[in-house]
Simulated scan of single mutants.
Amino acid sequence: MMRPYRVEIPQENLDDLAARLAATRFTRPLPGRGLGVPADRVQHLVEYWRDGYDWRASERQINAHPQFTTEIDGLDVHFLHIRSAQPDALPLILTHGWPMSVVEFLPLIDLLSDAFHLVIPSVPGFGFSGTPREPGWNRRRIAAAWAELMHRLGYERYGAHGNDVGSLISLELGRLDPHRIAGVHVTQIFSLPSGDPAERAKLGPDDQAKLAILERFMAGRSAYLTLQSTQPQTLAHALADSPAGQLAWNLQLFGETVSDDYILTNAAIYWLTDTAGSSALIGYHGNRPPAEPSSVPLGVACFADDFFPSIRPLAERDHSAIVHWNEYDRGGHHAAQEEPRLLADDIRTFFTARR
């Protein structure tokens, strides 16, 4: 059963949030560089969150689109569902990443809804979907829930797009439901080099440069992934209590390339729904690459400033059906926010060929 849904945060929750923001105890800046999110950046955003940011405006932006929940595998799944005016439009399910939410894809709706029926779910444990009450909600189980969701909506042939964690889920959906999937389009292929020096030696200069970016990220900015993959409950105690802490934790993967309002909307969703811990479960419950490659047609859009660049020879090692690969000279890890038209055009081009 599909139940209509609206985001309606009680005012007392917002009042509590405002009081906690006003009482924030900011940490002192540490000496040195590269030590994490700067203290002055967090202080600036907390002050704006308290005095300038309008949650109700963000709520209205989300509620401008039809939303529903349905129970799948014992868990409520929240999703936006925007039907195209074209009856023969291709259904497309878009899966957000971490620390994002369905808000990630709001800029794509007007750009894609002429040609696609859009389904934009909240990943289980994130935002407005239910939180897992048992272990095992890894990307394969989420992909199985997506396949069931599309079946319930009456979509027997459809496409999938994902970013960040959503890329991993979308790839798994292609493996799980290959006879119904027209194609999978992603913005990252998380293919890492093996320990074989010969594999590295075969990479050309451009791919060596991408590998250097990737290795810098893993060496200097991946602590969040280690903690979420090993101690999500420990982390959740701190973030559930402190909205400023939630903001700082999210901010490490947002940087300066997206708007302050977008950053705060996502931080607010995580804090107001108490999903800091449950959103980490997707890493904790296992996301090792599967042994078998996917045979579903795969398209990749690579954006120049993505801190986790896709390296084509490594991607082709792990995926046998890459039929579309575009590299752009702008945009980054949050392409739907940074370069929505560029991303929408790439999605459209890929799926036009799949029709």
Rank of each mutant, 00 (worst) to 15 (best):
Y5G: 02
R6A: 12
V7W: 06
V7C: 12
E8V: 10
P10N: 00
Q11E: 08
E12A: 12
L14G: 01
D16L: 12
A23G: 07
T27Q: 15
L30A: 13
G34D: 02
G36Y: 02
R41L: 09
V42C: 06
H44N: 15
W49A: 02
R50P: 05
Y53N: 07
W55H: 13
R56M: 10
S58W: 01
A64F: 07
Q67I: 08
E71S: 14
E71Q: 13
L75H: 05
V77F: 04
H78K: 03
H78W: 08
L80W: 10
L80Q: 14
H81F: 11
D88L: 12
L90V: 08
L90G: 04
P91K: 02
P91M: 01
I93V: 15
H96D: 14
V102N: 04
V102T: 06
V103H: 06
E104A: 09
E104F: 06
F105T: 06
L111K: 09
L112I: 00
S113A: 15
A115H: 11
F116V: 07
L118C: 08
I120W: 06
I120T: 00
P124A: 10
T131C: 14
P135I: 14
P135Y: 09
W137P: 07
R139L: 14
R140N: 12
R140V: 05
R140Q: 15
I142W: 00
I142M: 11
A143Y: 12
A143Q: 09
A143F: 11
H151F: 05
E156S: 10
H161A: 02
G162W: 00
L171C: 01
L173H: 02
L173V: 00
R175Q: 03
V184C: 09
H185L: 01
T187A: 05
Q188P: 00
P193I: 07
P197G: 09
G204Y: 11
A209K: 13
A212N: 14
L214P: 04
L214T: 01
L214D: 07
F217V: 03
M218S: 03
Y224Q: 07
L225Y: 08
L225A: 14
L227P: 03
Q231D: 15
S242A: 07
A244E: 07
L253C: 07
L253Q: 14
F254S: 00
S259G: 04
T265L: 11
N266Y: 09
A267S: 12
T273G: 10
D274K: 13
D274M: 09
T275C: 13
G277R: 06
I282Q: 01
I282T: 01
Y284Q: 13
P289W: 08
P289S: 07
P290R: 14
L298T: 02
V300R: 04
A301H: 03
F303L: 00
A304R: 12
P309E: 05
I311M: 06
P313V: 04
P313D: 11
A315Q: 05
E316Q: 14
R317H: 13
D318C: 09
S320D: 15
S320E: 15
I322E: 12
H324M: 09
H324K: 05
D329L: 13
H333I: 01
A336I: 05
F350W: 08
F351L: 02
